[in-house]
Amino acid sequence: MSSNDDPKTNGADSDAHLPSPSATTHTIPHILLFFILGMAASMILGWLIFPQLLYSQKNQPIDFNHRLHMELVDQGCQSCHFFREDGTFSGSPKLAQCISCHDQRLGLSENEKIFFEEYVAKDREVPWLVYARQPDCVFFSHAAHVEGARMDCVTCHGNTGTSESLRPYEENRLTGYSRDIWGRKISGLKVNSWDRMKMSDCAKCHAQYADIHDSSEQTRRDACFVCHK
């Protein structure tokens, strides 16, 4: 009688030396269950927990009300976010611009109190956290887009001008850049043009216009050096 006839060696478990008493319980659905469990856990990690870990939240120094200011100024966004005489873009307003109206305390709101006492009175610049700041390796010219291509601010920045409150600034713990660059959705999908400002989003628009995507003599493709100087 050969050892192959030994009934103890038969069954689903092919291990000749360590027969498992529970071998009969390892059915395919059972294994699938664990597969699904693993998959579910990692997807919960990737889709829900990972974004929480990746971004830290910071509040702006003052909760600025864009809608209120837009009602008071004549030239829309460019009243405060203007182009300088040399064509460069001013970005977030400096204290000097704010003081042209806020040379004394205007109103009794808590934000006005913080602004006046902490910054105007002490002649300190407000350390605004800029949602749309691109990485330093990106050269971006507002003049080329706003004045050259006649694009509207909303195309990239959304309806910030009508907001009454500043949302928390979310900073990528690894890169130090704003969450707005990748977009609110961790999937990277977007609904509106302003939902995301990654290179592919720039490239998509650039590719539509012949005069801005054929400047690479080497590759004849969308020119890297338009943005990466």
Binding site: I31, F34, F35, G38, M39, S42, L45, G46, W47, G188
Partner: peptide, 26 residues
């Protein structure tokens, strides 16, 4: 076998999540 199945499921789930792609980009 269940453990391996769990790990494979985890790997597949990770690949279907934004984690590796986002981290690579970052």
């Amino acid at each position: 076998r269940c453990f391996l199945s769990f790990v494979i499921g985890g790997a597949a789930g990770t690949a279907l999540s934004p984690l590796p792609w986002k981290l690579t980009d970052d």
